[in-house]
């Protein structure tokens, strides 16, 4: 479904990504892990069009999306959340979702100006749909509150719902469990599994190994801008390079 071919990224002479290649197949929950600064978020930024790769190609469902601007990438069916939460704080939860759904609105500016039935009907229908999306992350009760007033965990879930609202085929989720307590994390895992079951392919960056081991079908490990291992969670757990990357080399045995 999504294929990265030899992606490299330099930030003013500093090579942050080097020959990154991997493939995500349809229906997967794909985990992307690695220590701090490994380059995971940079990979997301490049896929979503916020950064241009220095070299390499990105193929999504057979079309080349390398160097496409973000809104085109989203139109193609890739949506994402942000590691440093970025909800629209001054808007209500419902409005956050409606922004994500903006492409589903078809009424004209004339309908808007004269408040014609077509506009009223469409707003009503799509608001109901937005409520359905909020219910996936269990936030319907707070629909009319300002997003800025939510807890961290709730804001992360709202971002997830807002990304879903763009009707993506592939969802990129950057550290959703950060700042969540164990109960929230548990609920989040169930929600992600449910989203996946409903036909969305998922790529997940996460430091919490319980989450990765619990829901990912396939995992790629990054360190210093390179993919150092990939495979099923069980394979990854045993991989020596991965243990070294996370715990540092054991100097006595080396």
């Amino acid at each position: 479904m999504l294929k990265l071919e030899n992606i490299a990224k330099d930030f003013g002479g500093l090579r942050v990504l080097n020959g990154v290649s991997f493939e995500i197949s349809e229906g997967q929950i794909f985990g992307l892990i690695g220590p701090n600064g490994a380059g995971k978020t940079t990979v997301f930024n490049i896929i979503s069009g916020l950064l241009k790769p220095s070299s390499g190609r990105i193929i999504f469902n057979k079309s080349d999306i390398t160097n496409q601007p973000p809104h085109v990438v989203t139109e193609q069916g890739i949506s994402r959340t942000f590691q440093n939460i970025r909800v629209f704080e001054d808007m209500s939860l419902l409005e956050n979702i409606l922004v994500g759904m903006h492409r589903l609105f078809s009424y004209s500016s004339v309908s808007m100006f004269f408040d014609l039935p077509k506009k009223k009907k469409e707003e009503k229908q799509l608001r109901e749909k937005a409520m359905d999306i909020l219910s996936i992350v269990h936030l319907t009760e707070k629909a009319d509150l300002k997003a800025g007033g939510l807890s961290y965990g709730e804001q992360r879930k709202l971002e997830l719902a807002r990304a879903l609202a763009t009707e993506p085929k592939l969802l990129l989720i950057d550290e959703p469990a950060a700042g969540m307590n164990p109960a929230e994390t548990e609920e989040l895992m169930n929600e992600i599994k449910l989203i996946n079951k409903n036909g969305y392919t998922i790529c997940l960056i996460e430091h919490d190994m319980k989450v990765i081991m619990g829901i990912c079908g396939y995992v790629a490990v990054m360190n210093f801008g390179e993919i150092i291992a990939e495979g099923s969670p069980e394979e990854i757990r045993k991989e020596k390079l991965v243990i070294e990357a996370y715990l540092g080399k054991d100097e006595k045995s080396a």
Partner: peptide
């Protein structure tokens, strides 16, 4: 009229965070 419409929400989204707005598929 603009306030509770698609166009109004898009302007507000751009105002709050232009990068996120573009990731939502907004030109």
């Amino acid at each position: 009229r603009l306030r509770d419409s698609r166009f109004g929400r898009i302007l507000e989204a751009i105002n709050e965070d232009e990068v996120v707005a573009s990731v939502m598929g907004i030109k």
